[in-house]
Structures are given as C-alpha cells and as structure tokens.
Amino acid sequence: MSAHAVPADAYTTGLLSKDLPTELERLQLLEKTYDPGTVQALGRLPMRADWRCLEVGAGAGSIAYWLADRVPDGSVLAVDIDPRFIDADRAPQLEVRGSDITTDDFPAGSFDLIHARAVFMHLPRRREMIERAMQWLAPGGWLVLEDVHFLPAADSPYPAWQEVHGAYLTALAQQGIDLSWARRLPAELAAAGCEAVDVSVTPGGLGVDEVQDQLLGIRLIQSGPRLVEAGLVTAEQMAAAQRLVESGPAPDLSTFVYSAWGRKPAGPAQ
C-alpha cells in the first residue's frame, strides 16, 4: 500500500478543487447518488477474485473499496490527481496513488478492469485516452467508463434554475469539460476495438430525490461565490436557486449518467 502526492495543477483550482471546504461532502453525496448505477454496471461483468483493477479518478474512494472487497486475491490501484480523501489502509490489496493519467503511464496488459466515473469528460484528448486505456488492459479485460451528459439549462421549467444552472454549465465548459461527451461513450468504445459494448443510463436533477437535492445544494454553496465573482450570475439569483432546491420542487431532469462498458478482444493486441 502506498499514497503519493502530486502537485496541484490548474484544474485543481477550479470549481471542483479538493481545497474547497465542501468538496468532500460533495463527493460523498455524488457517491450516494451514483454508486448504485456504477455497482449495477460493474456487477454485470464476469469479475473474478484475482482481477487486477485500475480505478481512475477515485474521488472519495467508495468504488475502489467496493472493488477491493470483490478481488481478495487480486489488486485495486486507485488513482486520482489529488487522492487525499482515499484511505490507503482500507484493504491490503488496495494501493492509492496520486496520478495524472494524461501524462502518467502503466505497463501494457496490466489490468483486467479499468473503471473511471466523471473523468474522461474532463480530459482534453478523450479518444486518445481510451486508446491508451485499451493498451493498459489485458486481452479479455473490461473498460467501464461513466460520464455525465448535461441537458440544456434553458429547457428547465424553473426560471431560477435556468439562470444558475446555465451559469454553472458555462463555467464547467470554460474549465474544459465536455458537457455532451457521455452520449458518445458506447460508440467510442466500439471504435477503440471493444467487443460486447453496452450501456445503461441513470437520470439526475433537481427534485429527483433527497440526496440529489442535497448534492445540488452543496454545489450551489461551493460554486456560488465563483460564479458571482465571474459575473455569470448575481447573488440574488443564487439565493433564489437555493430556495428552489430547498422547496422540494417537482422533478426537473438535467443530467444523465451514461455507464458504458466493453471488452478488449482476447486475441492478439491491436
């Protein structure tokens, strides 16, 4: 087991910086919201106790821990550009490492499973990164990618949410995040040579359930000052959006998490 730090880069100073006081709570609420869909997708794979797993962008660690419980004779390498919230002592087969997968590399054929949630949408060369991940997979190994597809803020029935959610999406796009990449995941996996490609989708948004409203409330607290400072929204608009979240509104779906998976062919390397 080991835990290595990596220097902060420009991304870690943005809306999702680990230095923000609410970021751990946001990550934990995200886990509560999306872990069931992730576990369901991973549960469809023919996982063995000796699999070697790579968990990319491990966040607060919940899926890395889940995987470690299922590969007692294997290994889980949990990487994140800032792994401060992951417990490296959780399991003997778990290793935690600070890593930027856009610059770091892994030996060819060294993993039976690679999983990443809400990671590739942040990367500048997504197709190239899928191709690199395929090289890291052993023949017959599985690549599971999950990302968020954001629906247009202008389609919300709530004016207060149109304004603030729209400002948030603008800030994410300015940070380099592709808001519609997730929809392309199955086709991208197939283009990279994956077999048995499949997909499931988990809806999210305002009023969907209590946990998601808590997540959105934390997001407003966390992003609000920066959005106001950037001139994308006013403090009054932020307050109106917060009241809307707290009111328990009728559901307004604004995101779909695409969970896509495929298997590297068991034949010769491509």
Rank of each mutant, 00 (worst) to 15 (best):
F150I: 13
R132M: 02
V119N: 04
G141D: 07
P139H: 09
R132W: 02
F106S: 05
L145V: 13
H122N: 09
V148S: 09
H122L: 13
P152H: 10
P152A: 13
I114Q: 04
L151D: 02
L94R: 04
R132I: 08
D147S: 13
V119I: 07
V96I: 05
F120E: 00
H122I: 01
P92T: 10
R117S: 03
V144I: 15
Q135E: 04
V148N: 10
V144R: 00
G141Y: 09
T102Y: 01
D104T: 03
F150C: 15
V144Y: 13
E128T: 12
I114T: 02
L113Q: 08
A116F: 08
R125H: 15
R97S: 15
M121R: 05
S110E: 00
L113E: 03
L113F: 10
L113V: 02
V144G: 09
M134F: 13
D104L: 02
E128K: 12
R126N: 05
F150A: 15
M134L: 11
D105W: 07
W136Q: 02
L145T: 06
L123W: 11
Q135P: 03
I130R: 13
I101G: 01
H149G: 14
R127M: 12
D147N: 08
P92W: 11
F120M: 09
E95T: 15
F150T: 12
R117A: 04
D104A: 09
D112F: 04
G98E: 07
R132N: 12
I101W: 05
M134V: 09
E146A: 15
E146C: 14
F120N: 10
S99H: 08
